[in-house]
Nucleic acid binder design. Structure first.
Length: 466
DNA sequence: TTTTGAGTTGTTCGA
DNA sequence: GTCGAACAACTCAAA
């Protein structure tokens, strides 16, 4: 077998996916331990069957996150190699080019992704390579959390209780001190991937709001833990208060790991409020775990109702003008419009307002949750294959441990409760109160009644016919 | 083995 | 103005 260099092992490949960080990255740490020079690879795979291409906001984030990652790697003496194409072709191609002896990656949990990874693991091992995969992106891998009868949980609380009763998540791994790279490996230029919008350039609000990359994700975590955690439980529901962590895109792209979050927010001496807040915040991490667990068992989550009786629901598909009014924040309902404009401008929306805007689309406009899910997929910087569809199904009532369908958010009441002085609404809807602001496109009371009537059809189609 | 109670995020209505 | 009940059906675990 040809060797690369003389006294070295054949080089290693670390294949990064949604784990764009150097610290607490078991694939990198293990490859470094192996001692051979290594190539850190990111593959833009828009060809493998079933893998959902990133939306526009996600592509913007990815571009900058890869830039940051490349900088971080080169500071340690390594390089990031970019390639594009189906992983089943491109990974073996790189293996052959550099005569790699080992491949390392962190595990993925979506259906199409697991298919790709399993096939590669088999074929590369048959070709004589070492292949090592690691747990890095979930505190508890889906197959380790089961009910006492061995099946998947369908209700959050017992799921999370089972996680909390399991062995505690491991400590985060430190970043390596240096990386021995492999020189002169060809790769794509990031700009050639054209991940950034140009005509038009709609990313101005994103640039003003976010700094993608591991360094800033760590900074956000540190800031949240030191400055915001104690008040989190009290303030998290106020969209104007800026009381949430804003770690979701960092977790989405793996710039920060759930292990780092888990341990950081529980570190040190905590006041009773902070302890309470930390538990509440970690519960949100728990929902992330729960949603990935659901996706693991239901890989078609973004297209299929988790509860099949919802197949009978008479959704609209957004044929008329209602959908566009919702997307552009011109429904005439201030809190909904503020949320949708926040989303459009900065690629993000406060959690409570996600529920309000989703409920409005599904229950007041009677538009299919999948239509809204696709819009969020395209516009959110943090949309991932598990959380985005699971949360939409949660609001729709069609999901696992979902909100009961009769729970219809009233956006006017929600504004009174959670944005009493209108700070959030005025931030994104400055023309509020002027003649330029549109009249409501639906009557809230009437459309609520229609939604509840439509739900009767689902109930009739459900399990309790008489 | 069977029963029982509790479960992220809400709203409306009537007393 | 405040308060409790009703709005479903089902999963999971404890008793």
């Amino acid at each position: 077998m040809p060797t690369h260099g003389t006294l070295h092992y054949p080089p290693s490949i670390v294949w990064l996916r949604d784990d764009l960080r150097i610290a607490d990255n078991p694939a990198i740490a293990s490859a470094v331990d192996r001692g051979a020079p290594l190539v850190v690879l990111y593959l833009l795979d828009e060809e493998s069957p079933g893998i959902r291409p990133l939306g526009g906001a996600g592509r913007w984030w990815l571009h900058h996150s890869l830039e940051a990652l490349a900088t971080g790697l080169s500071a340690l003496g390594g390089t990031l190699v970019l390639r594009r194409g189906a992983a089943a072709n491109e990974l073996p191609r790189l293996v052959n080019e550099i005569h790699a002896g080992a491949v390392f990656w962190n595990r993925r949990y979506g259906g199409p992704e697991r298919t790709v990874d399993a096939a590669l693991m088999t074929s590369l091992r048959e070709a004589g390579l070492e292949v090592h995969s690691f747990q890095a992106n979930l505190l508890h891998e889906p197959w380790t959390v089961t009910t006492s009868s061995g099946g998947p949980f369908r209700v959050f609380t017992p799921f999370w209780n089972a996680c909390l009763a399991a062995p505690h998540p491991r400590d985060p791994l430190p970043a390596p001190n240096e990386l021995a790279g492999v020189p002169d490996v060809a790769g794509d230029a990031l700009d050639d991937w054209k991940l950034l919008p140009t005509h038009p350039d709609w990313a101005g609000g994103l640039r003003e709001t976010w700094v993608p990359g591991e360094a800033d994700a760590s900074r956000r975590l540190e800031q949240f833990a030191t400055e915001d955690l104690a008040d989190y439980d009290a303030a998290r529901d106020s969209p104007g208060a800026n009381a949430t962590s804003r770690l979701s895109p960092g977790l989405r792209f793996g710039e920060v790991s759930p292990f780092q979050v888990w341990h950081r927010v529980q570190r040190g001496e905590l006041s009773p409020e902070a302890r309470h807040s930390a538990a509440r915040f970690l519960g949100e991490l728990g929902w992330r775990e729960f949603n990935w667990n659901i996706l693991y068992h239901r890989p078609d989550l973004h297209e299929k109702n988790f509860r099949p009786e919802f197949d009978a629901f008479p959704w609209h598909q957004g044929e008329g003008r209602d959908l566009e009014a919702w997307q552009r924040g011109r429904t005439g309902i201030p809190l909904v419009d503020a949320g949708m404009r926040q989303l459009w401008q900065v690629g993000y929306m406060h959690n409570r307002i996600r529920m309000v805007t989703a409920s409005f689309l599904i229950k007041n406009l009677l538009i299919d949750w999948r239509v809204g899910e696709r819009w969020f997929w395209d516009t959110l910087v943090d949309a991932d294959p598990a959380n985005n569809p699971a949360n939409w199904q949660w609001v729709a009532g069609s999901g696992a441990d979902a909100a009961p369908y009769f729970r219809v958010f009233n956006p006017v009441l929600q504004a009174e409760k959670f944005d009493k002085h209108g700070d959030y609404q005025r931030t994104f809807v400055p023309e509020l109160g002027s003649a330029a602001y549109p009249k409501p496109i639906v009557d809230l009371k009437e459309s609520r009644a229609q939604a509840l009537a439509a739900y009767e059809q689902v109930r009739r189609a459900g399990g309790h016919q008489q």
